[in-house]
Design a protein around this nucleic acid. Structure first.
Length: 459
RNA sequence: GUCCCCAUCGUCUAGCCCGGUCAGGACGUCUCCCUUUCACGGAGAUAACCGGGGUUCGAAUCCCCGUGGGGACGCCA
């Protein structure tokens, strides 16, 4: 195990979104790549905005995405507690150090961090008030991704609110010191905060960790970074929609990072092996749900049969809709056959309930447009009659057996397979799309097929 | 407004650090092929170095200025 220690430090004040997941992922990847330690720390100092429910969303999402933490809530560790709401004594202790060093003062009931330098009053016309500026030298940030960045930190700032609670900048730095964090990997939106943090590290006489400010994820439509309210922003949404976590992780890893060759679909082990700071971009990335959907499909198609069935079943159970309930009530081996027949055809598990509905009920929807089109062309009823006669005795044991039989029939009549397909498909499924016709027959079974044939013939 | 970061196809990106390739891949879109519908797959097409200066024999690549995009300016995190 290396001495690299990174942390993901979310605050449970909202749902867990794509940007947070990506930050967590880059931290996790770096920890796994270096053989370091991945720490989960909950920044819940703003009691008004926190909730237990949001906390569970964080745990569930991280677990679902496969990002296990080595230290943190639930698993413990030598540097706990890992929830800031439980670290009050530590913060008081660190505050005493700063005060002893003469770096704090009280104003308006709050405790401020005092910068070193000459003071002067200036009117800030953006904020419309007089502020005290401190003549300081620029703070230097050596960023692993941005390089050398300088920013002037020239105003004292609050570290303890008048209600007695410490603020983000303070607890963030104190915990990074106390938890011996070596690399701070976070969104670029924190780059401007970093000068505050560096000044605090220096005031504590603590070593400054390496910083890596990663590019932001921008919303796909409209300006600005992606936020909780944006379409497709929430991790739990993908979980609900049956996306494969490994596909989402793979997609996310490519947002702002590249293995530098043309690989895109990669095993997580390969991503871990290749991931490092030089591969991280400096520019923001726009979220693209089409590419994510494509990635998801690629993973879905490659899933071994047993895995696919398990995931599909999980999805059906989670949906708990009338359609999925009926499917789940079906005979297990039949259900399995239906799912496997559909696997190569669908792009997402979301499509599955609608795609397979007619397997589980005789009362399936018939697409009127398709019906009119199919029944209005050629002699569909005659074809259906011929097929009925054939299938009454045909061998249903395999797709190829059925296929051979239909092809022989078609050949005898001087027709093609296609002449039988559209009407047969309409009869058994009410639509013009679906799995292979022969697979459909085999799984549905002779009785159902013939019953559905006669229903259409009588209509 | 001030400060900070960034800038290659519509999107994600490779190339940039260490100047010299028809600027490569993927998603999307379109065409064709495969085919038993719909997909998958295969072949192809489409499409980019933000602008202007400079350095240089030569700039996507180095420098400067513009412009554009993003972020931060809370007793939120």
């Amino acid at each position: 195990m290396s001495n690299v220690r990174v942390r993901f430090a979310p605050s449970p004040t909202g749902f867990f979104h794509i940007g947070s997941a990506r930050t967590a992922l880059f931290n996790w990847l770096y920890a796994r790549h270096t053989g370091g330690t991945f720490i989960l720390r909950i920044e819940d100092t703003d009691q008004a905005r926190n909730s237990e429910e949001f906390l569970n969303v964080i745990y569930d999402s991280l677990t679902w995405l496969g990002m296990t933490w080595d230290e943190g809530p639930k698993v413990g560790g030598a540097f706990g507690p890992y929830r800031q709401s439980e670290r009050g004594d530590i913060y008081k202790e660190y505050l005493a150090k700063l005060t002893a060093a003469g770096r704090t003062y009280e104003k308006d009931g709050a405790i401020w961090f005092k910068l070193l330098g000459e003071r002067s009053e200036v009117f800030d016309d953006h904020r419309k008030k007089i502020v005290t500026k401190v003549a300081t030298a620029p703070t230097v940030i050596d960023d692993q991704i941005r390089g050398h960045v300088e920013r002037v930190e020239d105003e004292d700032f609050v570290i303890f609110r008048s209600d007695g609670n410490p603020v983000f900048h303070f607890v963030n730095v104190v915990d990074d010191i106390a938890m011996q964090i070596t690399h701070v990997i976070r969104g670029e939106d924190h780059l401007s905060n970093t000068s505050k943090h560096v000044e605090l590290f220096k005031a504590f006489g603590a070593p400054v960790p390496a910083f890596a400010h990663i590019p932001l994820i921008l919303k796909q439509n409209g300006p600005g970074k992606m936020s909780k309210r944006d379409q497709g922003a929430l991790i739990e949404e993908y979980q609900k929609r049956g996306y494969l976590p490994e596909a989402l992780v793979n997609f996310l890893s490519l947002l702002g990072w590249s293995p530098k060759d043309d690989r895109e679909k990669m095993l997580i082990a390969d991503i871990v092996a290749l991931f490092d700071f030089p591969g991280i971009n400096q520019s923001n990335a726009r979220f693209d749900d089409k590419k994510l959907a494509h990635m998801n499909m690629a993973y879905l198609l490659e899933l071994p049969a047993d895995d696919f069935v398990v995931r599909a079943l999980e999805y059906f159970e989670k949906q708990a809709s009338p359609v999925t309930a009926v499917a789940l009530a079906a005979e297990p081996t039949y259900l399995r056959e239906v799912l496997l027949l559909s696997q190569p055809k669908i792009k997402s598990l979301e499509e599955l309930p609608a795609y397979t509905a007619y397997f589980f009920t005789e009362d399936f929807v018939v697409d009127a447009k398709v019906r009119d089109k199919v029944m209005g062309k050629g002699e569909p009823k005659l074809r259906l009659a011929e097929l009925t006669e054939l299938l009454t005795t045909a061998d249903f044991s395999s797709d190829t057996a059925i296929e051979e039989a239909i092809k022989a029939l078609a050949a005898a009549k001087g027709l093609g397979f296609g002449d039988y397909q559209s009407v047969a498909r309409l009869a058994v499924s009410g639509t013009n799309v679906g799995p292979s016709l022969t697979g459909l027959f085999r799984v549905l079974g002779r009785e159902r097929v013939l019953a559905r044939f006669s229903r259409l013939a009588a209509a």
